[in-house]
Nucleic acid binder design. Structure first.
Length: 663
RNA sequence: GCUGCUGUAGCUCAGUGGUAGAGCACUCCCUUGGUAAGGGAGAGGUCGUGAGUUCAAUCCUCACCAGCAGCACCA
């Protein structure tokens, strides 16, 4: 006599086990028609599943977000059926729903190409139109293995073999086709609908392990209706429009060429961006009590052996040798061992702790060729790195202090919120279990005291310690992991760092590795995409262009540019033999935030006609007013706070620069 | 690194087994124009690199390099 509790709190009683379908029908024909699956006590299951005991039931309809996962998973089955119908002999493996869609990995000698997509999509639509019902069956394990092996589906057979004994072997049929699957599924393939699209083909290792065979994967996107599909495709187009590689080219910020793959040639405008950001970070660090240092690029392998990096990352290090000396020097892949060298140069007192040592550390790592990506993933990069040498007791306050600094920086750089992840011990790690216990507990406690809430990210810590990962969300909803804070008991021990305590005895400091941007290269890539190249005034590589209308106004245009330059602005004068329309167009496409137009009128009156990027109106200002206004807008947010902008201005008053950024 | 795709002018791209084309950008000339492209002329490429097939290769084959997508990696 199961009693079914519905989300509105009402309870329905049934004589004996009852399927979800029957429950839905008892509620009403509308729901019976709309229900795709149900949640029984919070677990998503097939409507056909009989409910034998009291339970809370919620029906999932197409309106429900949860329908997305079902549609995508069912669509994956439809894709697999379509492919096997078109190319018999292709082996199926797995095909999960993922963010925005699904994929299916196939084993086939001949890989698929996008040219195959129309045929596959047509076949999928045919299968959806057939509308076969999903039927779940539970098979004896041995029979299932034999069945798939006889059909030459050795991957499926392997999957079944590796399922735990307790797991029932469930098979879903859709018409003549069937697949091993945990479920749940909707009622029939017709529920998949038509809002799906095959996106790309790619290789993928069987079970994600690079030692295994490479399968051929088809990615697809699937949604509840065509409108959602279109919105998603639009979002992809938007991401492409913002691609930092495209914008970097368009705005002449940087380039990369074959002779230095993975390293960046920064052009003047890109380097301007870089130095503005670096200057800002330098001020932020000074304000937060860091001491800046600079350490060697080339360091003998013995130091990397001592630190443990040689053992773990030797293959990813650039090695330089000198024939006369039989020495192996490594281009430093990171800064921490060098910072320890400064720390241990001379006796340290507990009075010096916490000691915050910062470096814009230029590092080189031999990244695998397939990992390189524009300026986001490179082989030569500069970290906004720092190490805090402190005692156990100082971990919590230093964590709080760091998180506060990081939040300020992110806000100034145009990111209002971030998430935190807690990454704990990885499989491949240095240090004893005890030290890991201690480090993880200390970091957790520090988060608690600092009021930092985090998600768990198991097994993703650094090899020497657990870490907090700080994740930004950009203007179009993408996440970027940038900041990090890592607790390290291992390195101070390996490199024998110590300080003299109050008790006159030697003690080991803890090291906190931390970064806010991560690397300048990657972060600038993120900024380019975040702003789509339309930087706030203070970051813009060219802040103002003075455009003359007629030759007579040329001397005045040059004067105006000089005045702005003297006020510290990045300014260009455009006195080319072009119409003003063409100049406006050129500099708007270059995403220059402010264009000052000067003709005869302005030259005579000592004024400028100001036009802002994204607007199509002009404002007439005297030259003095314009210089004062633009210089104020171009002031970095931290300096604006410092100068106070008048007494009593709130520290976090919205910046004019930000408000002038185009919508 | 793995799988697949791509590589032609500064940029975006077309094209052919008989040694190349467009638009934009660039240079010069005309034009002095008031808020997203004024007109004309010119210059610019050993078709990623190296081998092979062929009477003949930018085009076909192979290798390498680089880029793109995904996977794997990311101290």
């Amino acid at each position: 006599m199961p009693a079914i509790t519905l989300p509105d709190g009402s309870v329905r009683h049934f004589d004996g086990a009852v399927t979800g379908t029957a429950v839905a029908e008892s509620i009403g024909p509308g729901l019976a028609k709309a229900a795709l699956a149900m949640e029984v006590d919070g677990r998503l299951v097939d409507l056909s599943l009989p409910i034998g005991t009291d339970a809370a039931v919620r029906f999932v309809t197409r309106k429900d977000e949860a329908a997305l996962g079902l549609i995508r998973h069912d669509a994956a089955h439809v894709l697999a059926e379509a492919v096997q119908e078109l190319w018999p002999g292709t082996q199926v493996t797995i095909g999960p729903a993922i963010e925005n869609g699904f994929y299916y990995d196939f084993a086939r000698n001949e890989p698929f190409t996008p040219e195959d997509f129309p045929a596959i999509e047509a076949k999928m639509r045919e299968i959806v139109a057939r509308g076969a019902r999903f039927e779940r069956e539970v098979w004896p394990r041995e029979e299932a293995i034999r069945f798939f092996e006889e059909r030459g589906e050795r991957y499926k057979a392997e999957l079944i073999r590796d399922l735990p004994e307790s797991e029932p072997i469930s098979i879903y049929r859709q018409g003549d086709w069937l697949d091993l699957c945990r479920g749940p599924h909707m009622r029939s393939v017709a529920d998949v609908g038509s809002a799906f699209k095959l996106m790309k083909v790619a290789g993928a290792y069987w079970r994600g392990d690079h030692r295994n065979a490479m399968l051929t994967r088809i990615y697809a996107t699937a949604w509840r209706d065509g409108k959602e599909l279109d919105a998603h495709l639009l979002q992809l187009a938007e991401a492409e429009r913002r691609d930092h590689r495209r914008i970097g080219k368009e705005m002449d910020l940087f380039h990369i060429q074959e002779e230095a793959t993975g390293s960046i040639f920064w052009h003047p405008k890109g380097w301007r961006l870089y130095t503005v950001l670096q200057d800002y970070m330098r001020r932020a660090q000074q304000g937060a009590g860091y001491q800046e240092v600079r350490t060697p690029q080339l360091v003998d392998r013995t130091l990397w052996e001592a630190s443990g990096h040689w053992e773990n990352y030797r293959d990813h290090m650039f090695i330089a040798t000198v024939e006369e000396e039989d020495k192996h020097l490594a281009l430093k892949p990171m800064n921490c061992p060098c910072h320890v060298q400064i720390f241990r140069h001379g006796l340290r007192s507990y009075r010096e702790l916490p000691l915050r040592m910062a470096e814009f550390g230029a590092c080189h790592r031999y990244e695998p060729s397939g990992a390189l990506h524009g300026i986001m993933r490179v082989r030569a990069f500069t970290q906004d790195d720092a190490h805090i040498f402190c005692t156990d007791d100082q971990i919590a306050p230093e964590t709080a202090r760091f998180v506060a600094m990081l939040a300020d920086v992110y806000r100034d750089l145009g990111f209002d919120s971030f998430r935190v992840k807690f990454a704990d011990r990885p499989d491949n790690r240095a240090g004893s279990e005890e030290s890991w216990d201690k480090a993880e507990a200390a970091l957790k406690e520090a988060c608690r005291l600092a009021g930092v809430e985090y998600e768990h990210n198991p097994g993703e810590g650094a090899f020497y310690g657990p870490k907090l990962e700080f994740v930004l969300r950009d203007a179009i909803g993408r996440d970027w992991q940038c900041g990090t804070l890592q607790v390290d008991y291992v390195l101070p021990d390996r490199l024998d760092a110590s300080f003299i305590g109050e008790d006159s005895a030697r003690h080991r400091p803890v090291m906190l590795h931390r970064a806010i941007l991560g690397s300048f290269e990657r972060f600038i890539g993120i900024l380019i995409e975040q702003f789509a190249g339309r930087f706030p005034m203070w970051m813009a590589p060219v802040q103002v262009v003075v455009a003359s209308i007629v030759t007579d106004a040329e001397p005045y245009a040059l004067d105006v540019a000089d005045r702005l330059r003297a006020a510290g602005l990045q300014v260009e004068a455009d006195t080319a033999n072009e119409k003003i329309n063409a100049k406006i167009r050129t500099h708007s496409l270059q995403r220059v935030p402010v264009i000052l137009v000067v003709g005869r009128k302005e030259a005579e009156a000592g004024t400028v006609a100001m036009r802002r990027l994204g607007g199509n109106t002009q404002e007439m200002l005297s030259l003095d007013e314009a210089v004062a206004l633009l210089a104020a807008e171009a002031t970095p947010p931290d300096l604006r706070r410092r100068s106070g902008n008048g007494a009593g201005a709130p520290a976090d008053s919205p910046s004019t620069a930000a408000s002038s950024a185009p919508a």
